[in-house]
């Protein structure tokens, strides 16, 4: 998954730094899907708009969901024994970050980085 993301980011022409930010985010959110969401899927899209182009990643699972999204987004908050930086850190590393989750109804996180 990481190498697929890396390939897309390279193709779209992201700088080395932005490629690193994108791959790191993919690793964090992908790990959350496996660790907290009981597995799911990832979609990678190259988006082209009139005046800009970017990479979008959608992480989707049908796991337990997040009951307190605000709390989950605080630096250092973890319900297991992680570092609690995956969500808050990914939000900082990407340009757009959208989290939709309902208890018992899975989690979908959409992140975008623009070139």
């Amino acid at each position: 998954m990481r190498s697929a993301v890396k390939m897309h980011a390279e193709d779209i022409g992201f700088s080395k730094l932005n490629q690193t930010k994108i791959v790191t985010t993919a690793s964090e959110l992908g790990r959350n899907v496996l660790e907290h969401g009981n597995g799911g899927r990832v979609m990678i899209e190259h988006i082209k708009e009139l005046d800009r182009s970017g990479l979008r990643m959608i992480f989707q699972d049908e796991g337990p969901g997040i009951d307190n999204v605000e709390k989950a987004l605080v630096d250092g908050y973890t319900s297991k024994c992680g570092l609690g930086l995956g969500l808050s850190g990914s939000k900082r590393l990407m340009d757009d970050f959208e989290l939709v989750s309902q208890p018992n109804n899975g989690t979908t996180i959409t992140v975008t980085k623009w070139t």
């Binding site: 080395k16 730094l17 490629q19 690193t20 250092g76 850190g89």
Partner: peptide
């Protein structure tokens, strides 16, 4: 450590 990694982990909060 590659410079891009140093910047990225700092922003991540590690």
């Amino acid at each position: 450590m590659q410079p891009a990694i140093a910047i990225t982990i700092t922003e991540l909060g590690v």
